[in-house]
Design a protein around this nucleic acid. Structure first.
Length: 646
RNA sequence: GCCAAUGUAGCUCAGUUGGCCAGAGCAGCUGAUUUGUAAUCAGCUGGUCGGGGGUUCGAAUCCCUCCAUUGGCUCCA
């Protein structure tokens, strides 16, 4: 007998070789039906695998990440089986579970798969799932595995196996399909009840664009039909929040083919919103000792040769502008830092002057690949809320800390709760890639790690992700359909001070090199506004929204009174409109609710007589009537609370 | 840039075995109505069917090409 310890520390005895499934069965038959995988002493395995020694276990069902992972991973195998059935001779790449579902990269040879054929794969999968094929695990040696997949002609699997360490290789077989796989897998395919093959894309083998492009097929599956329906509804809902749609509906921005793709045009309401965001940040920055600067949109090519950007990105960028004078070339500014370095340099700096914090809402231009453009989140011309802090090495930690405070204040004010942070460090195996001394790097990395944890952030630390010029901390949020976007970024830079030969005179009367910190709490105004739109579904906080209130007269008879209210509110800095169309009140309410105007102020006979307004709040309905002065105070209070620092 | 798809009025969408002057709803304009908490009624305007080329007696519809957009991949200062 062996001792099995459950998560609640209970211990029970089972015969040697018992399986997770049998354990589940012993607890409850219902549980046995729901078990997808098992953790044995922290290692995730098939629920059908024999357990041979005393172990602590955890059974995984659909409601935990490990369970879903096994479910979708098995679904990927099922899809592969369907594809092999439909398109014999297909070669298989990798087929992992992802955050929402799974995909498989396949090489279909001459066959070009079209989206209309996804349904065929789906039907085949449903048919195969119902056969209740068992997932069989098998261990073979590496040479045997190589032999097997070579014979099959699966060059991708052969390559994968070749890269594996020597030893045993595990295979999983179900139905007619065998795959190289670490597992774990479901007990059998019949647990997969609802299947949707969602989309189709090209994907380079091993993510390398120089290698062959495979066909990536995405899908998602569920243990219950109703879950798939819910998921599809969720996707529909997300679509409604898409910033491209909301941005058009609310008249915030647009694009024009004539102007060029990836070059957003901010409409009056969008511009007003953005300006308010900028002023909000400017105010904080002033408090934190930043000084505003302004630099031009172009610079001599030499400037970017000096900074190193030209060598790295020049040929993939907008090409230089040449002038009538021979040999003169200018580049559209791809970033602000070289300009700011020159501002730092315009006069000698003393250690007493540091840190110097130069801030600019600087518009930059980058020739992003055409396939990469996306609404406002990925564009070719955008404005960074950029600043560069020039400081002494011993000031890095404190400056970093202050920047984090700014970012957190912004996120709090805008109710961004669901963000993640990532610390990017050097690759320890490749130290030569980086500029700057070991000592400085150690200090900076240490400072970032310490400050981040002092601020209570749980950052993911990723070695090897740092830029060659310094470590960084990024803030990421997800958009409506779950795509992750980087917003705020704080980066230490040892490179530019070197390249621009930046100096300060130290206490010792010697020249020293300052360190630069690049930082952008929003990232770019375009991307930030896009994400803000998706977060709020266009219902912006009261201090930010383009229009705060609209007066709705019941009929033309109350036009004069309505205009009086309008004037009073606008004179009190409440951004107010009037809807004096010849429409019924129900229609006016509907239209202005759809425009996400936070307060609708209805005035008719009753209000005119009493000198009041009837207030209706977005999403909440009728709040009753009040004096305009009380309404003004209500809004002011709401704005103050939203911007409060506590 | 690569793979796949899409492109008809300001918006959402009908319209292909190739065939009368290309349709609807919303928006816009005009008029009637003077309205009490999510759509009042009527009339009118509006499209070189993404651009160009081709096949055909005839193309929104079939073919080629370019552009843009969408979902991925790669890239991302």
């Amino acid at each position: 007998m062996i001792k099995i310890t459950f998560p609640d520390s209970r211990v029970k005895e089972y015969p040697v070789g018992t399986t997770g499934l049998e354990i589940a069965q012993s607890l409850s038959p219902q549980l046995a039906k729901e078990v997808l995988a098992i953790s044995v002493n922290g290692e995730i395995r098939d629920a059908t695998r024999a357990i041979t020694e005393n172990s602590a276990i955890r059974l995984h069902k659909w409601d935990d990440a490990e369970g879903k992972h096994a479910f979708w991973h098995s679904s990927a195998h099922l899809m592969a089986e369907a594809i092999e059935n439909l398109y014999p001779g297909t070669k298989f790449g990798i087929g992992p579970a992802i955050e929402n579902g799974f995909y498989y990269d396949v090489d279909l040879g001459e066959k070009v798969l079209s989206e209309t054929e996804l349904v065929d794969i789906e039907s085949k999968m449903i048919e195969l799932a119902a056969r209740k094929s068992i997932f069989n695990r098998e261990e073979i040696s590496k040479p045997e595995a190589l032999d097997l997949f070579s014979k099959k002609g699966d060059e991708y699997k052969v390559e994968l196996i070749s890269d594996l360490e020597d030893g045993t290789i595990t295979l999983y077989k179900h139905g007619s399909f065998t795959d190289l796989c670490r597992g774990p897998h479901l007990p059998d395919t019949s647990l997969i009840k609802a299947i949707k093959v969602t989309s189709l894309a090209g994907a380079y083998w091993r993510g390398d664009e120089k290698r062959k492009q495979l066909t990536r097929i995405y899908g998602i599956t569920f243990p219950k039909k109703s879950m798939l329906d819910e998921y599809m509804i969720l996707l529909e809902e997300a679509k409604k929040r898409d910033h491209r749609k909301v941005g058009r509906d609310l008249e915030l921005f647009t694009f024009s083919q004539r102007v060029g793709s990836g070059l957003p045009l901010w409409l009056p309401k969008g511009a007003a919103l953005r300006e308010r965001l900028e002023n909000f940040l400017k105010k904080i920055q002033k408090e934190y000792g930043y000084e505003g600067v302004i630099t031009p949109h172009i610079g001599q090519k030499e400037l970017y040769v000096t900074s190193g950007h030209y060598a790295k990105y020049g040929k993939d960028s907008f090409q230089p502008i040449t002038t009538p004078v021979e040999g003169e070339e200018f580049l559209l500014k791809p970033m602000n830092c070289p300009h700011h370095c020159e501002i730092y340099k315009y006069k000698p700096r003393s250690y007493k002057d540091l840190p110097v914090r130069l801030a600019e809402f600087g518009t930059v231009y980058r020739y992003e690949q055409s396939g990469e453009l996306h609404g406002l989140t990925r564009v070719r011309g955008f404005t960074q809320d950029d600043a560069h802090i020039f400081c002494r090495p011993d000031q890095i930690k404190e400056e970093f800390s202050k920047v984090i405070d700014i970012v957190l204040y912004i996120f709090k004010t805008l109710d961004f709760k669901d963000f993640t942070t990532q610390i990017s460090l050097r690759d320890p195996n490749n130290p030569d890639k980086y500029i700057g001394s070991d000592e400085n790097w150690n200090k900076a990395e240490q400072a970032i790690i310490e400050v981040t944890s002092e601020k209570g952030l749980t950052a993911v630390v990723v070695p090897g992700e740092a830029a060659f010029y310094g470590p960084k901390l990024d803030f990421m949020v997800k958009d409506a359909i779950g795509r992750k976007w980087q917003l705020g970024t704080i980066q230490v830079d040892y490179n530019l001070p070197e390249r621009f030969e930046l100096e300060y005179i130290g206490q010792d009367n010697q020249k020293h090199r300052p360190v630069m910190i690049h930082r952008a709490p929003f990232g770019s105004m375009e991307r930030f506004v896009a994400v803000l739109i998706e977060h709020t579904a266009g219902k912006f906080p009261i201090w930010l929204t383009p229009d705060q209130a609209i007066v709705l007269p019941i009929s033309e008879k109350y036009q004069n009174y309505a205009e009086g209210v309008l004037k009073l509110l606008n004179n009190s800095d409440i951004r107010t409109l009037i809807d004096d169309r010849n429409e019924k009140i129900g229609k006016k309410i509907r239209d202005n609710e759809l425009k996400r105007i936070p307060y609708l102020l209805i005035v008719g006979e009753k209000e005119e007589t009493e000198g009041t307004i009837s207030v209706r709040k977005q999403g909440q309905g009728d709040l009753g009537s009040m004096k305009p002065e009380d309404f003004i105070n209500l809004i002011r209070k709401e704005v103050d609370e939203a911007l409060s620092r506590d």
